[in-house]
Design a protein around this nucleic acid. Sequence first.
DNA 1: GCAGCCGCTTGATCTGGATCAACAATTGCC
DNA 2: GGCAATTGTTGATCCAGATCAAGCGGCTGC
Lengths: 240, 240
Amino acid sequence: MSDRSPQSMSATARSQNPDSTAHAVIPGVLLPLRKQQRVLLTQKPADHIVLVMTGVLMVEARLPERDRQVLEILFPGDAYHTQDAPGLLGASLIAATPAELQRYRPEALEAIERSNPEFRRRLESAMAHRSARRTLHLASMSGASGEERLADFLVEIGLHLGRQVQGSRSFDMPLSREEIADYLALNPDTLSRIFSRMKSSGVISISRGRATVPDWPALMRLSPFGAAQTELYEQTRVPA
Amino acid sequence: MSDRSPQSMSATARSQNPDSTAHAVIPGVLLPLRKQQRVLLTQKPADHIVLVMTGVLMVEARLPERDRQVLEILFPGDAYHTQDAPGLLGASLIAATPAELQRYRPEALEAIERSNPEFRRRLESAMAHRSARRTLHLASMSGASGEERLADFLVEIGLHLGRQVQGSRSFDMPLSREEIADYLALNPDTLSRIFSRMKSSGVISISRGRATVPDWPALMRLSPFGAAQTELYEQTRVPA
DNA sequence: GCAGCCGCTTGATCTGGATCAACAATTGCC
DNA sequence: GGCAATTGTTGATCCAGATCAAGCGGCTGC
């Protein structure tokens, strides 16, 4: 349906920001973000929609007396609707890597959609895909152990940012340990321990922010929702 | 925006199925469900949209070797899109109380929407509202303790099914202990203990499936996401 | 009325992950 | 290159919630 897949391009392409034309460029307001730059989603009375053109983003929630949470991770091709986070959550988007967003106000969007039904269809498909991914993340958070949650996370990142060579797969890790911990509802100490165990069991190796999973099926076996994630990811690629 | 609110009706109305015309009746296929009846969401290649007319539903996921999970709870006025759960999750809708659904295939829906933009707006608003509620549930599941999660759940149910009298609020509990446990990612034993503590501290009392919260603000103080839920719920009521 | 079952409660024990506290490794900055 | 600051690792201890097991009450069906 949408053309978000890195794999559909030549093997020499960069894996980090694989696809600068994840959506045909129908211009809204272009928003280039440097690493760690933040876009507030709160207190904007007018909702809007944001398309991720390049880079990786985090949706963060911060409630007064509570730890920061990373609610979801956005990749090129994803569409985010401001209304998805209630105002009181104190949500923002944060660029995990340098990124480019395209922002649309709803009126503008409606006009575009009327004149370009193909664009509307893409947008709806992107939204549906992200919604299903959120379901999987919820399922993982509420049904899986720490190690399983980390495996699910690695599958998610690997699918979206990784390049497959034989049965192995490698990718640049866009999130810091603490950010991953906030996404997985683990504390950083515990996460570090789980990572160490996985490294010593050979499931993954990491050096200088580059992760390699030598045996992808082995990782999939640790990941309760990996198969569902893969199915979902495959659907977003051109079926033809 | 939509007219889903029980409170807008007279105080003598039943609180359980308060509003049989949550959406203006634009007929799709009407689906009456008895308690515990199940509608499979899987393996339907054609996606469709379901409107909850009356009753309370659970969205359940069941993966081969894993415990059942309740991913979300649906109330009258809610709209559910089949695509929100990936096929491999093994999802179904289950009626927690007797319920009525209206089901639409996407083609039919498109035709209706074209001729009735008001209906389309309502549907989108219902979807947006549910999406925000899902965000809050995720936040609660990954950031809150058992007691806080239960408080969040009670606020959710109380808002949707409760009737306010002074500062107190009461409602029929639509879910069993085990179902609540599956929704909150707790085990039933632990949940029962937390309930007992809350009962003995006077936050809530339950008899014959009817729950009473004598001091609603006290419950809200235990609920990290209660304020955000309330804000959200209020938005769905006619602002005028 | 009573047998049996199911949903719920409660006690005793166990454990995965949190917390606290050093310490090591990177990264950034002059 | 060298030093400070930030980020990641690891050990020791602790605790919320899971697990296991036993009882309790209310409902169903005979």
